[in-house]
Amino acid sequence: MEPIVYVALGAALAAGIAGAASSFGVGIAGAAAAGAVAEDEKNFRNALVLQGLPMTQSIYGLITLFLIALVSGILGGGFKFAETTTENIIKAAILLGAGLTVGLTGLSAIPQGIIASAGIGAVSKNPKTFTQAIIFAAMAETMAIFGLVGALILIITGVGF
Protein backbone atom coordinates (compact mmCIF):
# COMPACT_ATOMS: atom_id res chain seq x y z
CA MET A 1 0.00 0.00 0.00
CA GLU A 2 1.01 3.63 -0.51
CA PRO A 3 2.19 5.68 2.52
CA ILE A 4 -0.89 7.91 2.28
CA VAL A 5 -3.08 4.86 2.95
CA TYR A 6 -1.23 4.05 6.19
CA VAL A 7 -1.27 7.65 7.37
CA ALA A 8 -4.95 8.03 6.59
CA LEU A 9 -5.68 4.68 8.24
CA GLY A 10 -3.73 5.73 11.35
CA ALA A 11 -5.70 8.94 11.68
CA ALA A 12 -9.02 7.32 10.88
CA LEU A 13 -8.52 4.37 13.22
CA ALA A 14 -7.42 6.59 16.12
CA ALA A 15 -10.58 8.66 15.93
CA GLY A 16 -12.78 5.89 14.54
CA ILE A 17 -12.08 3.04 16.97
CA ALA A 18 -11.87 5.33 20.01
CA GLY A 19 -15.06 7.11 18.91
CA ALA A 20 -16.94 3.88 18.28
CA ALA A 21 -15.75 2.46 21.61
CA SER A 22 -16.87 5.65 23.37
CA SER A 23 -20.28 5.42 21.80
CA PHE A 24 -20.63 1.80 22.94
CA GLY A 25 -19.41 2.73 26.44
CA VAL A 26 -21.75 5.70 26.70
CA GLY A 27 -24.54 3.52 25.29
CA ILE A 28 -24.08 0.79 27.88
CA ALA A 29 -23.87 3.29 30.74
CA GLY A 30 -26.76 5.26 29.22
CA ALA A 31 -29.02 2.22 29.25
CA ALA A 32 -28.19 1.74 32.93
CA ALA A 33 -28.82 5.45 33.57
CA ALA A 34 -32.25 5.15 31.94
CA GLY A 35 -33.04 2.15 34.13
CA ALA A 36 -31.97 3.97 37.29
CA VAL A 37 -33.94 7.13 36.40
CA ALA A 38 -37.02 5.06 35.46
CA GLU A 39 -37.22 3.96 39.09
CA ASP A 40 -36.17 7.23 40.73
CA GLU A 41 -35.58 10.64 39.09
CA LYS A 42 -33.16 11.55 41.88
CA ASN A 43 -30.62 9.22 40.27
CA PHE A 44 -30.29 11.54 37.25
CA ARG A 45 -27.30 13.66 38.38
CA ASN A 46 -25.15 10.75 39.54
CA ALA A 47 -26.06 8.64 36.50
CA LEU A 48 -25.25 11.49 34.10
CA VAL A 49 -21.74 11.97 35.53
CA LEU A 50 -21.00 8.24 35.33
CA GLN A 51 -22.48 7.96 31.85
CA GLY A 52 -20.18 10.72 30.54
CA LEU A 53 -16.93 9.04 31.63
CA PRO A 54 -16.43 6.81 28.55
CA MET A 55 -16.63 9.88 26.27
CA THR A 56 -13.01 10.99 26.91
CA GLN A 57 -11.49 8.26 24.71
CA SER A 58 -13.10 9.83 21.66
CA ILE A 59 -11.38 13.13 22.55
CA TYR A 60 -8.00 11.37 22.67
CA GLY A 61 -8.76 9.86 19.27
CA LEU A 62 -9.62 13.27 17.85
CA ILE A 63 -6.40 14.83 19.24
CA THR A 64 -4.39 12.03 17.62
CA LEU A 65 -6.19 12.48 14.31
CA PHE A 66 -5.27 16.17 14.25
CA LEU A 67 -1.66 15.45 15.22
CA ILE A 68 -1.21 12.81 12.52
CA ALA A 69 -2.81 15.07 9.93
CA LEU A 70 -0.55 17.92 11.06
CA VAL A 71 2.81 16.10 11.06
CA SER A 72 2.11 14.36 7.76
CA GLY A 73 1.18 17.62 6.13
CA ILE A 74 -2.41 16.64 5.37
CA LEU A 75 -3.34 19.69 7.43
CA GLY A 76 -1.67 22.96 6.49
CA GLY A 77 0.33 22.02 3.43
CA GLY A 78 1.13 19.22 1.04
CA PHE A 79 1.42 15.57 2.06
CA LYS A 80 5.06 14.93 3.08
CA PHE A 81 5.30 11.18 2.38
CA ALA A 82 3.80 10.95 -1.08
CA GLU A 83 6.71 9.03 -2.59
CA THR A 84 6.84 5.26 -1.87
CA THR A 85 10.29 5.08 -0.31
CA THR A 86 11.36 2.89 2.64
CA GLU A 87 11.78 5.98 4.80
CA ASN A 88 8.32 7.26 3.94
CA ILE A 89 6.76 3.83 4.45
CA ILE A 90 8.42 3.61 7.89
CA LYS A 91 7.22 7.09 8.88
CA ALA A 92 3.73 6.28 7.61
CA ALA A 93 3.84 3.02 9.58
CA ILE A 94 4.86 4.93 12.73
CA LEU A 95 1.87 7.22 12.27
CA LEU A 96 -0.36 4.20 11.68
CA GLY A 97 1.07 2.64 14.86
CA ALA A 98 0.39 5.84 16.82
CA GLY A 99 -3.17 5.94 15.54
CA LEU A 100 -3.70 2.27 16.31
CA THR A 101 -2.31 2.70 19.82
CA VAL A 102 -4.84 5.39 20.61
CA GLY A 103 -7.63 3.55 18.80
CA LEU A 104 -7.04 0.23 20.53
CA THR A 105 -6.43 1.67 24.00
CA GLY A 106 -9.55 3.74 23.33
CA LEU A 107 -11.46 0.46 23.41
CA SER A 108 -11.15 0.82 27.18
CA ALA A 109 -14.27 2.99 26.80
CA ILE A 110 -16.33 -0.21 26.48
CA PRO A 111 -15.28 -1.80 29.79
CA GLN A 112 -15.43 1.68 31.28
CA GLY A 113 -19.06 1.84 30.17
CA ILE A 114 -19.67 -1.58 31.73
CA ILE A 115 -18.05 -0.48 35.01
CA ALA A 116 -20.01 2.79 34.91
CA SER A 117 -23.20 0.78 34.27
CA ALA A 118 -22.57 -1.43 37.30
CA GLY A 119 -21.63 1.74 39.21
CA ILE A 120 -24.93 3.40 38.28
CA GLY A 121 -26.68 0.32 39.65
CA ALA A 122 -24.68 0.48 42.88
CA VAL A 123 -25.27 4.24 43.29
CA SER A 124 -29.01 3.78 42.67
CA LYS A 125 -29.10 1.34 45.56
CA ASN A 126 -26.74 3.32 47.79
CA PRO A 127 -25.92 6.93 46.74
CA LYS A 128 -22.97 6.97 49.17
CA THR A 129 -21.01 4.77 46.73
CA PHE A 130 -20.90 7.54 44.08
CA THR A 131 -17.24 8.52 44.62
CA GLN A 132 -16.09 4.91 44.64
CA ALA A 133 -18.07 4.20 41.45
CA ILE A 134 -16.34 7.15 39.74
CA ILE A 135 -12.91 5.91 40.85
CA PHE A 136 -13.59 2.37 39.62
CA ALA A 137 -14.74 3.63 36.24
CA ALA A 138 -11.85 6.10 35.99
CA MET A 139 -9.38 3.22 36.38
CA ALA A 140 -10.21 2.08 32.84
CA GLU A 141 -9.28 5.57 31.66
CA THR A 142 -5.60 4.99 32.55
CA MET A 143 -5.10 2.64 29.59
CA ALA A 144 -6.41 5.28 27.19
CA ILE A 145 -4.09 7.90 28.74
CA PHE A 146 -1.12 5.54 28.38
CA GLY A 147 -2.10 5.02 24.75
CA LEU A 148 -2.27 8.76 24.10
CA VAL A 149 1.12 9.37 25.76
CA GLY A 150 2.65 6.49 23.75
CA ALA A 151 1.21 7.86 20.53
CA LEU A 152 2.55 11.37 21.27
CA ILE A 153 6.04 9.94 21.86
CA LEU A 154 5.82 7.92 18.63
CA ILE A 155 4.68 10.92 16.59
CA ILE A 156 7.14 13.43 18.05
CA THR A 157 10.23 11.21 18.18
CA GLY A 158 9.48 8.98 15.18
CA VAL A 159 8.25 11.56 12.70
CA GLY A 160 8.53 15.04 14.24
CA PHE A 161 6.95 18.29 13.12
Binding site: I28, A31, A32, A34, E39, D40, I114, S117, G121, S124
Partner: peptide, 25 residues
Protein backbone atom coordinates in the same frame (compact mmCIF):
# COMPACT_ATOMS: atom_id res chain seq x y z
CA UNK B 1 -13.46 -9.82 21.76
CA UNK B 2 -15.43 -6.59 21.59
CA UNK B 3 -18.45 -8.40 20.18
CA UNK B 4 -18.24 -10.98 22.96
CA UNK B 5 -18.08 -8.33 25.70
CA UNK B 6 -20.92 -6.34 24.21
CA UNK B 7 -23.13 -9.42 23.81
CA UNK B 8 -22.48 -10.48 27.38
CA UNK B 9 -23.02 -7.24 29.29
CA UNK B 10 -25.04 -4.76 27.24
CA UNK B 11 -28.45 -6.50 27.58
CA UNK B 12 -28.20 -6.43 31.39
CA UNK B 13 -27.26 -2.77 31.63
CA UNK B 14 -30.78 -1.31 31.73
CA UNK B 15 -32.57 -4.01 33.77
CA UNK B 16 -29.85 -4.35 36.39
CA UNK B 17 -29.59 -0.62 37.10
CA UNK B 18 -33.37 -0.49 37.36
CA UNK B 19 -33.48 -3.47 39.70
CA UNK B 20 -30.70 -1.96 41.84
CA UNK B 21 -32.80 1.20 42.16
CA UNK B 22 -35.75 -1.00 43.17
CA UNK B 23 -33.57 -2.70 45.78
CA UNK B 24 -33.10 0.69 47.45
CA UNK B 25 -36.84 0.66 48.19
Amino acid sequence: KTGQILWKYTPYSYPNARIRAMEAR
